[in-house]
Amino acid sequence: MRPRSTVFAALTTMIAIGLAGCGQAPPAPPRDQGLPVTTVAPQADPAARWADAYCDAVTHLVRTLAQLPAVDPSTPQQASRTSSDLLSSVVAGLDRSLAGLNALGAPPVPSADGGREDVIGQFTGIRQQAESARQRIDAVRGDAAATKAALGEAKATLDRLDALDYLKGLRAAPALAAAEQRAPACRQLGQPPR
């Protein structure tokens, strides 16, 4: 499952428009698709508590992605500025999710931490790519050709995020996959956008 993939499709389209048509009217901003507030997992179920905390950590990124600023492709300068803002938001969301995943520690299921560690590694790599693309966009602001290339890096970052399975850290172990079904934050994370 990839939460909020429709948000990525819209953002990828906006960046593609920015790559193809600087000097055109800006697109409409994406609709706010906030997630409901999570509830507490049963205390007597350590696997469900851990899964709930895992999903709560991932929710930081999902919420950020659902509320990303729009890219304005009307001029190369606007495309650069708004793309930089978008990537700054992505980095901030990844930072919050990474902090939650790192603070979570190993799951209460023996030999089941590989999935969480893999997601942390993927988030870290995408964060580095997003920050690098943001810095490049800021450095070439005003140069239309260089901006177009830098916007391509931003799109590649969003494509990597879209391809992620945020819940892989739970599905790596059958006991955690079962706990996912009992964790309120995971159930809310899997709900379609409103």
Rank of each mutant, 00 (worst) to 15 (best):
A25S: 13
A150P: 12
D165R: 13
L167N: 07
A99S: 14
P107T: 01
D159Y: 06
R187S: 04
G105T: 05
G93R: 08
G23K: 08
L11Y: 05
D159T: 13
I120W: 11
L68F: 11
S88W: 08
P107D: 00
A144T: 05
D162L: 11
S74L: 04
Q135F: 01
I17D: 10
Q24G: 10
A103M: 05
L61P: 03
P26Y: 04
G34M: 12
L19C: 00
A139C: 13
R81F: 13
P26L: 00
A70W: 02
D113K: 09
V37R: 14
V109N: 04
Q43L: 13
A179F: 06
R49K: 08
V40T: 15
Y54Q: 02
L104K: 05
L98Q: 03
D159F: 05
H60Q: 08
D52Q: 03
A79Q: 09
R31N: 06
A154R: 09
R194D: 12
S80T: 15
G114Y: 13
S132K: 13
P108Q: 06
R4Q: 05
V91S: 09
L87I: 00
R31H: 12
A92I: 04
A173C: 01
V62H: 15
R134L: 00
L65I: 10
A48M: 06
Q33I: 07
A106H: 13
V71W: 07
Q128K: 14
T38H: 14
P76G: 01
G125D: 07
L35M: 13
G18A: 05
